[in-house]
């Protein structure tokens, strides 16, 4: 799994951090997503998939 994020789209809702806190964080100044691990281990895949699905702005792409 490889994660790419679109910072411009991100609306800072924080849903990804709730779903997969080991993979996503938020920038302090504006809440925009920070990718902690672009190629997370298998045990994170379900949480990352959920994060991508519930991201309101569709700012997380998985390949």
């Amino acid at each position: 799994m490889r994660i790419t994020i679109d910072e411009d789209k991100c609306c800072g809702a924080g849903q990804c951090v709730l779903a997969a806190p080991e993979v996503f964080d938020q920038r302090d100044e504006d809440g925009v997503v920070v990718l902690l691990d672009a190629e997370p281990p298998a045990e994170q895949h379900a949480a990352v998939t959920e994060a991508a699905q519930i991201c309101p702005a569709a700012a997380i792409a998985l390949a």
């Binding site: 609306c11 951090v17 938020q26």
Partner: peptide, 15 residues
Amino acid sequence: HNAQRRRFTGDFTIK
């Protein structure tokens, strides 16, 4: 929208 919203997103982060 996002330019305006981002004035506040830092105030409402999970942290």
